[in-house]
Design a protein around this nucleic acid. Structure first.
Lengths: 232, 232
DNA sequence: GTCTATATGTTGATAGAC
DNA sequence: GTCTATCAACATATAGAC
């Protein structure tokens, strides 16, 4: 956010500053995602970034602020893209209610693509936002609420139009289920025994079909104890 | 596992030993669940258990072994109950294939009830097994694979009989989605904005309906880009 | 079995030179 | 802006008294 001098004397210093700051953010993103916040020492980050502890504290002020910056850098554009996808789908529908599939796709695809490009770039095994979604640190929870709150509200509106006979509470709960699926997959924890046999390019479609069908399904109280029924 | 002397001289020592060990396990369970493994110092555990660090290392050997014991104490009976529920449902069905609902209920209900009794007992905000399911620590992952692997395999068999036209890979992936939903809810992270408006006693039914419908749904490739379709 | 005391290393953050 | 050097606090684990 601060402007660098353009003169030739300070040019190298200016470039180096940007580089150090970004190297720190990159290293923090990778290590926090791999080992969690408490499991990662500030020194491990600075070592990976080939910088000193002081440089990190100069740029960010504290370890917690570094996490905040690294998380925000990925999460903010991600949620912006989610809203853009939903808006453009609504524009294309010209006032007609969207498919449940189209709505959940608008929410899931941005994170899914972020995961794919991350897999290609480095050897990180999961997106930082998904990995830290369940981190016990308090700052993560508050940042999560602040950034996801409005987005979820916007998607619940769209879902309410697609499924007008369902209560807001039901839809909100179903959307929490969807988030559970997403976090599990994007964080890389969903690589169970035979689940990896599904080719990567079909994964998003499966997630969309699963969650859309789940959202559409009404709750069947009492279905829990029966062993025989109309459906298989 | 070790037998205590029954004589009156060592009776108090024997009882105290058991108490200390259990107090340590209780405190470790609560704190590890709240703050994660790396975020919890052994001292914080022993302080909460009103014991010394040495007592913890005497009984368990290390902080990591304490986590292992605390996690195993809850996870082992939980997974045993899951298998029992599935077996008794299959017995009651007398050879007929089970409902998808009955299968996912057998998997979900034990964890759900553990969460409920935990909510009643103490102020812990989530089951340790669910909270630590995503913990980056390596031991958690290996214990998870060791304990969940056979259980998941057994449930996939039952699902294969209920949905014979689906590939094993598809079912395994769908079951991973189900686990994502479960971990999200049981760990207490699924308490979003309006989702808490659902009464507690309906939560399990909603989870079952959502995941069963998701498992039944086939993937619709290309459903991701369309904005209008036959369904709403 | 449980304690106090201690050994040994690491942590996050800062001071001050350049 | 970036470094080296240093701080006080805290970590895990152990030794030895009782």
């Amino acid at each position: 956010m601060s402007f660098q001098p353009v003169g030739s004397a300070a040019a190298r210093a200016g470039r180096a500053q940007q580089d150090t700051k970004n190297r720190l953010l990159d290293a923090a993103e990778r290590l926090f995602a791999e080992r969690g916040f408490e499991g990662t020492s500030l020194r491990a980050v600075t070592r990976a970034a080939e910088a000193s502890v002081s440089a990190a504290n100069y740029h960010f002020g504290s370890k917690e602020a570094l996490l905040h910056a690294a998380l925000l850098r990925r999460l903010e554009p991600l949620n912006r893209r989610r809203l853009e996808c939903l808006a453009s789908a609504e524009d294309a529908a010209r006032g007609a209610p969207l498919t449940v599939e189209a709505i959940v796709a608008a929410f899931l695809r941005p994170g899914f693509e972020a995961r794919r490009s991350l897999q290609a770039d480095q050897a990180s095994d999961g997106h930082i936002a998904a990995r830290l979604y369940t981190d016990p640190h308090g700052m993560v929870a508050s940042l999560k609420a602040e950034l996801f709150g409005p987005v979820i509200g916007r998607f619940l509106e769209a879902l309410g139009r697609a499924l007008p006979d369902r209560s807001l509470a039901e839809l909100a709960l179903g959307f929490q289920f969807l988030i559970g699926v997403m976090v599990h997959v994007i964080s890389g924890h969903g690589g169970g025994p035979a689940a990896t046999a599904i080719p990567e390019h079909q994964l998003l479609d499966h997630m969309i079909s699963f969650t859309a069908a789940g959202l559409r399904a009404a709750s069947h109280p009492g279905s829990t104890a029966e062993t025989a029924g109309g459906r298989r």
